[in-house]
Simulated scan of single mutants.
Amino acid sequence: MSEKVAWITGGATGLGVQVAKELAAAGYHVLVNYRRSQKQAEALVETIRNMGREAVAIQGDVSDPLAVKAMVKEAHQRWGRLDVLICTAGPFLFRHISTVDLTDEEWREMIDGNLSSVFYSCRGVIPRMREQGWGRIITFGFPEVETAPAWPGFSAYGAAKVGVTSLTRSLAQEEAPYGITVNMVCPGDIRHPFKEAKIKDARGKLDAKNPVGRPGTGEDLARVIRFLIHKDSDFITGAVIPVTGGFDNRGFQIDK
C-alpha cells in the first residue's frame, strides 16, 4: 500500500481535531485514539471518511505501554504501515499547585501523560518507520520550552515538556540516518472553543494576550504540522517551532 497513515494521539478532541482533518485533506489515512471521548472520536472518524480517507478510532491510554503496543499493532494490521506520529495527547491541571503540594498521583499524571507517553509512542512506531526508510514525528511543547523556563504553579507539566524537548532533539539525531524527522510545535494559549476551530472562525475576534490580536486555533497548528510532515521538509529536524501569536507564558492566567 502506497498511501500513508498517520496516528494522532489524543486526537478525538482539542488541538488534534484540526490536525486530523488537515492530514486527511493531505491524503493520509488516520488513526485516532481516545481515552474517554468515544462519541467525539466516532464523529471525527465519520468526518474523515466523508473526505474520502480511511479512519479508525481506538480507545487507549498512551501513558500505558501495553495500550500503545496494541494501537501500533492495530495500525499495522489494518494498513501495513505507520508513517506519521502526532503526539497531541497530554494532560494539564488547570490550577496553580506549588511543587511541594503536588500529590504522587498528580506528579505521575503529568510525567506519564506528557513525557512517558511520547517515549512509548515513539518507541512503538520507529522500528517500522526505519524499515520503510521514512517517517515523521511531531511532539508538542509550550512557549519557550527549549529554554527550560520556570513555570511556578505548573512545575510538573513544565518538567515533563522540557523532557519532551530533549527527547525530541535526541530522537531527531538518532533517527536522521533512517529518513525520520522529529520536530516539536509549541502552541500558545489556545482554549476552547478555538482548539477545534479554523482560522476563519477566529478572524475578527479579539484576544489581547496575543500580540497578533486574535485567538489561536487548531488550524494554526495543523498548517505548520502539514508542512513539517511533507516529504520535502526532510532538512528540518530537531526544531522547536512556536505557533503562539507572539504569546509567552508570562501572560498565562487561569480562568476564574
Rank of each mutant, 00 (worst) to 15 (best):
R226I: 13
V182G: 00
G188A: 01
V243T: 08
L206Y: 14
K209G: 01
P149V: 12
G163V: 03
R226E: 04
H29L: 10
K4H: 08
G141P: 11
H29S: 15
I180M: 01
P65R: 00
F119D: 00
G113R: 05
G60K: 08
D255G: 05
W79S: 10
T103R: 03
N183Q: 08
V243I: 09
G27T: 10
A89T: 06
N114Y: 03
Q40L: 03
N210F: 03
H29M: 05
C186Y: 08
S63P: 09
G204T: 05
I97A: 01
P152I: 09
P143W: 08
K200H: 12
G188V: 05
K195V: 06
F252K: 15
G60F: 08
D61P: 08
T103W: 02
V100W: 06
E3M: 07
A75W: 02
P193C: 09
N183G: 11
P193Y: 07
M51P: 02
F247S: 04
M1H: 09
S98R: 10
A172C: 08
G204K: 00
G124D: 10
I180S: 02
S155N: 06
L115R: 10
S37V: 04
A55D: 10
L221F: 07
I138D: 02
G52E: 10
D220Y: 00
S98M: 12
Y28H: 13
A70G: 02
M51V: 06
D234Y: 01
F247W: 15
I97V: 14
R53I: 06
G16S: 06
V45K: 03
V32T: 11
R130T: 02
S116Y: 13
D234F: 04
D201K: 14
G218L: 04
A67I: 02
A172Y: 04
T88W: 07
D64W: 07
K4Q: 15
W79C: 11
G27E: 13
A222F: 00
P127N: 06
I137E: 01
F247K: 13
E106W: 01
Q38P: 05
S121P: 04
D248M: 12
R250V: 09
N183E: 09
